[in-house]
């Protein structure tokens, strides 16, 4: 079925070309006046390095590994995110630890290393969806650029601290973490010990 395109009948005034030119110039001049009287901050253009776009709440930007108020990492190294990740860019190594303050003496699991290769990540948010502990969030930071590939390979401590400055939280360093409990001999321990 064809579509009937309605031809616009131009009046002689419109066909004269002169009148439409005036109309067009009036339009552009209105834009000119509007743009020139608008302060820079209210214009359409966001002048990037000086101004930044505020991202909407659901924006999927750089990840953050969440922590409890006492600073302990929320992640329990369940590997759900690693499994869900379509880009296969998360690699986790788990360890056990126990500390009286945090775990009341129970053995708990946590990642000993948690790496996300930001160069491969497609920011799909699947890891956030999959996480049972709400421990990984994708937030509003989008300025992800670096001079070399390795510095975009975020480790556990990078990921914990990604939004520390924005949220006004203290940056956590590896030395502040309670040591892991070698309650069970690790695989490497087995291999290291010939006996």
């Amino acid at each position: 079925m064809g579509v009937i395109v309605k031809k616009v009948e131009l009046t002689w005034l419109d066909r004269s070309y002169v009148w439409p030119v005036f109309k067009g110039m009036a339009i552009t001049f209105r834009h000119f006046l509007k743009q020139i009287t608008t302060p820079t901050s209210k214009r359409f253009t966001i002048q990037y390095p000086d101004m930044k776009k505020a991202m909407p709440p659901g924006y999927r930007g750089l990840h953050e590994l969440k922590r409890f108020e006492d600073g302990a990492i929320k992640c329990v190294a369940c590997f759900m995110c690693q499994e869900a990740c379509p880009a296969r860019c998360i690699s986790i190594e788990a360890e056990e630890f126990s500390e009286l303050n945090f775990t009341q003496g129970f053995e708990e699991k946590r990642p000993s290393s948690f790496k996300i290769d930001m160069l491969r990540c497609i920011f799909c948010g699947m890891c956030e969806e999959a996480c049972p502990k709400d421990a990984i969030w994708l937030r509003n930071e989008y300025e992800l650029a670096a001079y070399d590939r390795l510095s975009l390979n975020f480790g556990k401590w990078d990921l914990i601290n990604t939004y520390a400055t924005v949220d006004g939280k203290a940056r956590l360093a590896q030395s502040q973490e309670s040591p892991a409990t070698p309650s069970r001999p690790t695989n490497s321990g087995h291999q290291a010990d010939p006996a």
Binding site: T28, H31, F32, K34, Q35, I36, T45
Partner: peptide, 13 residues
């Protein structure tokens, strides 16, 4: 600059 203003842009700055 004028063309930028006419077209709601910023122009070279």
């Amino acid at each position: 600059r004028g063309s930028a203003m006419l077209q709601d842009r910023i122009g070279p700055n």
